[in-house]
Design a protein around this nucleic acid. Structure first.
Length: 217
DNA sequence: ACATTAATTGTGT
DNA sequence: ACACAATTAATGT
């Protein structure tokens, strides 16, 4: 992981990605206190039990936020995308508690790291910062509700189908590069179940399976 | 090219 | 859910 100070090209990116932080003061404050971090894919940004030192403003790439199960299994909580910050980091720095989650870079990721202590001060000083924090919470909460009722009320094969459709839409050639285990984690299911559902779909001819890849038709 | 090993996927209980 | 078999990809020699 590399750390450096903020340069002019970053400021461009900050403006376009975080358009809601419109106050000049906020931007100045960010430029003054922030550090650019560049994290290669797969690197752990924060692990469980560590103290949170900073809150991230994502410029590019994405993060996975994971919780660890009683017996060491990983459970995906949510993703953090450009223009967002991590809701857990907000919670943690209010009580300066240890992190109960792990944050991993899903792809090569660039972000601005802000020291946690600024949270309070800025919320009082800058309305647009306060709104930004509020919206972060609100969105996370909505997503949480969606997750809950998809788990409670939707059948797994429907969820898998929808998930596949979304992924296919994002990849140009209609081929998804992923393992069954990873899909299972995303959908909060088990690897075997996903394997079997995929197999069924392959027999129906809706897709073609290969190692680490799924081709849709 | 071949053997070894690790990772991923398949299947029965 | 677990245990194990089968298959495939990666790596070393």
């Amino acid at each position: 992981m590399k750390t450096r100070s903020i340069e002019s090209e970053d400021i461009q990116q900050l403006n376009s990605t975080f358009a809601d932080l419109y106050e000049k003061n906020v931007k100045d404050a960010i430029l003054e206190t922030g550090q650019i971090m560049e994290i290669p894919e797969g690197e752990i940004l924060i692990d469980i039990g560590q103290y949170i030192k900073m809150m991230p403003l994502l410029l590019s790439g994405s993060l996975k936020i994971l919780r660890e199960d009683n017996d060491g299994k990983e459970l995906l909580l949510y993703h953090v995308h450009p223009g967002e910050t991590c809701a857990m980091s907000i919670t943690c720095c209010m009580g300066d508690a240890k992190s109960s989650v792990r944050a991993v870079a899903e792809e090569d990721t660039k972000l601005i790291a802000l020291p946690t202590r600024i949270m309070d001060e800025w919320s009082n000083q800058y309305p647009s910062w306060k709104h930004f924090i509020m919206r972060t919470y609100q969105r996370r909460f909505e997503e949480l509700l969606n997750t809950i009722d998809s788990i409670a009320f939707q059948k797994l094969d429907d969820r898998l189908e929808r998930w596949l459709k979304e992924k296919t839409a994002k990849s140009p050639d209609g081929v998804i590069q992923i393992t069954h285990q990873e899909i299972a984690s995303e959908l909060h299911s088990s690897r075997e179940v996903i394997s079997r559902l995929l197999k069924k779909m392959e027999h129906q001819g809706t897709l073609e399976l290969g190692r680490n890849k799924i081709k849709m038709r």
